[in-house]
Design a protein around this nucleic acid. Structure first.
Length: 289
DNA sequence: CAATCGTGGGA
DNA sequence: TTCCCAAGATT
């Protein structure tokens, strides 16, 4: 094992957080749902909703039997509600193409709606114990600092997978631990802002530290302002639909007092196009039944 | 490939 | 207050 991998594993054994999806027997479906919810949403906000979700829909087939509306409604305020729609579609695909069993093969996972390079490998590794590189933003930051001596990672690249694969031990279980440990270190120690290098288990072999913590100028694209954005308008529309009766709300009554009428119409239009809302013959707007 | 897509908490 | 950022995926 490389020194970096060995140090990560040693640290992880004594410092891993006790997260629900790490429990023995949590199941591939639970892992898959957790990974969908964790896409861009913080751990602490995911946990309670994940547990409620799995009580209602303990299997892919159970979720597939529900309506998309129920899925989007139960997604509540996790954000990026398209993920709820995609998770529901993935459940239907699992029922129809995989006999209701979450696939283990990475290519089969990649073929499911809403699953990309990260989530496919996360499920194969953390749910099934197979040996693949799992690379998320935490891992990319750890590699950028410890190996490249940079202050922040560059843009995501397919080569990230090869770089991670290069430090994985041969043993499957050990490889899975290295994957989890790199993510965990990035999440709790090697954080984007104010990293806690004083208690970092790999500081002695960290290239960024050796270089004196230079600011290497890796600047990520700034997120667009949320206040006044189309996303805010979409969020407001969807919040109304989530809280409304299933039959829906008169289209003209939805956020009727929105400051920008054109933006309001645009928000409803794109939500319809995305399949996150639909209209009824009698002019109601509702979640997709 | 760069833009888009929610929501909330902390610096 | 404002800005940053959080286990990404899709088009």
């Amino acid at each position: 094992m490389t020194p970096l991998a060995a140090a990560l594993v040693d640290w992880y054994r004594g410092n891993a957080r006790d997260l629900p999806w790490r429990a023995q027997g949590f199941g591939a479906w639970g892992v898959l749902v957790s990974e969908f919810m964790l896409q861009q949403t913080p751990v602490n906000r995911v946990i309670p909703l994940l547990e409620a979700w799995l009580v209602t829909w303990p299997t892919p087939t159970a979720l597939a039997a529900a309506s998309p509306a129920e899925a989007v409604q139960r997604w509540a305020n996790l954000g990026y509600p398209r993920r709820a729609l995609w998770l529901h579609r993935a459940a239907v695909e699992i029922r129809d193409r995989h006999d209701g069993v979450v696939p283990r093969d990475v290519d089969a996972l990649l073929a499911l709606t809403g699953i990309g390079d990260y989530t496919a490998r996360a499920v194969a590794v953390f749910a099934y114990g197979d040996r693949h590189p799992v690379v998320d933003t935490n891992t990319r930051r750890v590699l950028a600092r410890a190996v490249d001596g940079r202050s922040q990672p560059g843009p995501p690249a397919r080569s990230d997978l090869d770089r991670m694969a290069a430090i994985l031990p041969e043993d499957r279980a050990a490889a899975a631990t290295v994957n989890a440990a790199a993510m965990e270190l990035g999440a709790v120690v090697c954080t984007a802002r104010t990293p806690r290098c004083d208690l970092c288990p790999v500081r002695e072999l960290c290239a960024w530290r050796a270089a004196g913590y230079p600011d290497t100028g890796d600047t990520r694209r700034r997120q667009a302002r949320y206040e006044g954005s189309d996303r805010q308008a979409r969020g407001a529309v969807l919040a109304v639909l989530r809280d409304a009766a299933p039959e829906g709300v008169p289209v003209d009554a939805v956020i009727a007092d929105w400051p920008d009428a054109a933006q309001r119409d645009r928000a409803i239009g794109t939500l319809l196009a995305d399949g996150l809302a639909e209209t009824t013959p009698d002019g109601l707007l509702r979640l997709p039944a």
